[in-house]
Design a protein around this nucleic acid. Sequence first.
DNA 1: AAAAACTCTGTAAACGTTTACGGCGTTTGG
DNA 2: CCAAACGCCGTAAACGTTTACAGAGTTTTT
Lengths: 360, 360
Amino acid sequence: MAQGPTINTIAERAGVSIASVSRVLNGLPTRQETVRKVMAAADELGYVRNAVARSLKSRRTHQVAFAMADVGNPAYLAMLREIQPVLKAAGYRLVLHSTDAVAADEIEVLHSLGERYVDGLIMSPLRVTEAHLETLSAARAPVVIIGSVPEGTRVDNVRADSRTGVKLAIDHLYGLGRRRIGMINGPLDTVPGASRGAAYREALEELGLPYDEDLVQIGDFYRAEGGRAVAALLERVPDVDALMCANDLIALGALDVLRAAGRRVPEDVAVVGMDDTDLAAASWPSLTSVSLGSAERGKAAAELLLDRLQNGDREPRLVTVPPRLSVRASTAGEQAARTARNVPPGADAGRDAAGKGDGA
Amino acid sequence: MAQGPTINTIAERAGVSIASVSRVLNGLPTRQETVRKVMAAADELGYVRNAVARSLKSRRTHQVAFAMADVGNPAYLAMLREIQPVLKAAGYRLVLHSTDAVAADEIEVLHSLGERYVDGLIMSPLRVTEAHLETLSAARAPVVIIGSVPEGTRVDNVRADSRTGVKLAIDHLYGLGRRRIGMINGPLDTVPGASRGAAYREALEELGLPYDEDLVQIGDFYRAEGGRAVAALLERVPDVDALMCANDLIALGALDVLRAAGRRVPEDVAVVGMDDTDLAAASWPSLTSVSLGSAERGKAAAELLLDRLQNGDREPRLVTVPPRLSVRASTAGEQAARTARNVPPGADAGRDAAGKGDGA
DNA sequence: AAAAACTCTGTAAACGTTTACGGCGTTTGG
DNA sequence: CCAAACGCCGTAAACGTTTACAGAGTTTTT
């Protein structure tokens, strides 16, 4: 592979020094004649700046890393989708790390900041351990954490508010007249499982509804098990009239099982999901879902990082993104949902260019 | 920010030369005593290799770029999901480019290979223009193209086979006794639109069915417009008994409209989508869909690139990924679909850790 | 015992930029 | 007409590595 031209090649051909070439290429004040010669030579040679050499000297890579648990996870994708354009607009490239939700991998990513291949990092750790905090405090580049971090940790931080999110949903159901509101949750030893469970209890209490253990069923965060959990709950509490599901997949499982059991949604049982993924709009009936603002969190994180990159020593900031309730047919009925959103029938689609890019 | 330690710092502390330090760090043969001293110094200082300086010297960045049209597109995501682990296992980082399906951006990415910030590129262009080919032939790093490329282009290439994919679907519908099979397509001036339209026609001909223009309706690739197209088709050809949709979103729109029109799916009208996205499994009835193997294409592309990086001058290769039909309820009925997949009710969920990573 | 071979290490150059510094030639001011 | 000021430009050092080469010291061979 032919060695590409360098500023040396250009300098030779233009009959000037490499310093002049560099100055011209960087737009520093230079005599017109010199500019012309250098530009001509550069054009003829098809010169492109070597980013690596540039980074070595300038100590800036113009790259930022984003470490997510799982590339397939819609919540992280929503973040990615917002992070990408923000960084791109600011002239940064995006390096993607998938940590498979393994703490050791996350710590390895933090540690690898020492290699200085990126200027900063946005990370959304599954859960923050002592080891995370230690490595974090020694990190050799600015980091923004998406997710909760112990009080007093000196790091830029973006959080969701799932507590308020759950409350929004419960209040919504209450407002629709539901009084026997069940909860289908994931394992309580996960961060979201624990906080969503607690939030459910609190929301009921604030409304003056009794907390009834029979109304809570634990499974995992997937569709099949979610369905089974709902089946178990229906058996135990036949008069349940609403289901708060800890994520959208569980809610889809709920729809499966309710349909099989001959219960109408939302007339007999209203269903609410969480995360407001694409799936919520695709299902039938479409799913009311609590959005925890993944997209907004991604955007906020990117902006925090950019700000920090320009202004290294300001105080760490905390941004909390408010949740939002996307009301759809599974609680409000098709008619009501449509009115709320003010869209014509069938216009619920998100964007999708699927199939555009395939090789036919 | 404190300047991190370099091999110079280590050399000083260990009382050896930087060459020795480098040798030790790279595992080149060295006296035990020296190894010990260097390792000790490196540990004490918390030394981490500077990837940029390393790249400059070695002319290898251990980074690979993936350029996709749109981060939000499930088809590209499926690719990304497979590409990531393959590269990671081989010790490469992934740089993500989103080109917004703008040809100029794609060309810019190709051009920027000259900056040498990556060792290679996987690109899935919306459509390959003359300008693409020109820039491609002058690219300063190996490229793998996902998608079709003119005969004779010297580049590693991975393709889907949407022709066979459409045929699979049409044959399936024919096998179910359907004879009035409509097609809802996107614009014919897009690559997938054109090829899927042609494939539909051919598949009918091979089965001895007449090609009836009335059975074809063009819209775009989104849900709302897809629904409208279906409505128009129903009006014109009330006795249509199956719909071949050019992607899953169109198919979702079809389900919306058929439901509103009181037609049962699949009893009255069978529906097939394309791309086999997550949405297909989430909808109700779940959607039979043609998978064009996005995941497999991504994997193949990553492997081709890695191979090329190790073996620069072999002949370009072409890999064609066969399509697959995922039969679900929208053609076969719930019962049949379940039998075909041999899964219990409600176990249709894909993976999803949504909600795991959020800050609660 | 001298030469040859071998092992280990240090010096220095190179990768492709950016940039501080000083020199030279021209303009300006007194 | 000389000095000061200024505008351009070239030389060289630096960023943090890797690595060719040669020198020093040790071991083997003849």
